[in-house]
Design a protein around this nucleic acid. Sequence first.
DNA 1: TCAAAAGTGTTTCAGATACACCCATGT
DNA 2: ACATGGGTGTATCTGAAACACTTTTGA
Lengths: 244, 244
Amino acid sequence: MRQISPYISVDCVLFGYNGSELEVLIVDRTLKDDNSDELIINDRTLTGNHVYEDETIEDAAYRVLFDLTGLDSVFLEQFKTFANPDRLKRPNDQLWLQRTNRNPDARIVTVGFYSLVATDKVKLIWKGRNVNWVPVKEVGELAFDHNEILQEALKTLRLRIKYEPITFELLPEKFTLTQLQNVYEAIWGIELDKRNFRKKIARMKYLITLDEKQTGVAHKPARLYVFSREVYTKTKKELFDFTI
Amino acid sequence: MRQISPYISVDCVLFGYNGSELEVLIVDRTLKDDNSDELIINDRTLTGNHVYEDETIEDAAYRVLFDLTGLDSVFLEQFKTFANPDRLKRPNDQLWLQRTNRNPDARIVTVGFYSLVATDKVKLIWKGRNVNWVPVKEVGELAFDHNEILQEALKTLRLRIKYEPITFELLPEKFTLTQLQNVYEAIWGIELDKRNFRKKIARMKYLITLDEKQTGVAHKPARLYVFSREVYTKTKKELFDFTI
DNA sequence: TCAAAAGTGTTTCAGATACACCCATGT
DNA sequence: ACATGGGTGTATCTGAAACACTTTTGA
């Protein structure tokens, strides 16, 4: 029996893209009163879990994602660690810890990871809990310190896509340039000029044009593209270009 | 008596700048054999410490730095967490943990912070251990996983100075443009063109030109500048400019 | 034939790059 | 007087921004 670390957890901010908005995976947290069957907790959290004593935190995060999505090669990156001694001290959180057989007084350090998947790749099941994609803009109050974790993940994502071609992770394997542009727009919450966007994209050698086109759309079908990690790895500059 | 968390530590990568090279603070780790007085451990580490149970990790990192430097308002930023189950399992590290009354089998998660100070501001004392500034290029093998921690800190620093005016933290309050340029060069390990550097700097409103000049130098004395955090905060763009 | 998104080129402006000489000071 | 680093301007190129029309498909 693998030993669980009572002090270390990971939380995964799983971002998805549904074709128009940036979404995040949110799970419902409900608890019924033993006698009355009344809901005494009914709120929402990100996904996370404790880490096994002999497991790296990266593996733990992959495990959470695999349990959740069945996917085993998603993009995953650590972004920040949350360890405030009060982070689990709100009444509902204390109650939840008690009822799930954990020590509510323990100080749990959680390492935040964020992940990117195409929303439609994911079938949602997680430990019998109700799991939903929620547009980032519509996420209300979350349990624990999960609103803070989400905001930090978003901040990291917004910065990271400036340097690294990871936006593809939010799209199907074959995608159109408009879809790609929409991903940037959804993450940054701004609009980009189509022609300028395409000029910039044209410089990225790792975006491979396919001989295929969209089908079944009621307008001129768009060309499809794929991301070539191989070309990217070969051509990427040493870390980034140095200009102050 | 404050309770120490046996599972959470912070490690601080304290960067300094000596006028020509980027340096990092390194402490000697020595252990004598009880009988023979022979050194059985004689290697080097970064600075770090355990966290108190009621203390935030940021406060713990500030505490480490304060103990080390007497400075209480240094730049400090969390950059990554290291939690590999094997990270403290090398023989010297196991021995060290035993001799310093810690459980060598415990899994210790360490949160990495990096800090920036002007080297000459710091008087070096730390728990009776020998502390030295070492040029980053000349740091040899370190104990624990500290080489990895240092490399990650450096990577973060190299990226961060592209977005945020934190290079000033490595200089005296009043500095010359050449010193500032040298800081960028030292961190990135490249050379920059003097005239182009100054043109770029001229656009940064938060760099205030003083009416003072260098004294005691055997050449045309340079003008002195200060960084104005106030102007920076007022004029900085929302997070960063959005271009893909 | 209409609605919808795809796809495309030019002009203007800002910033990046490359490059060489005179100036003020201490010794 | 000389050695040392300070300080400055211009020309060229590359990328960013602004902007409108034709094309292809399904309904």
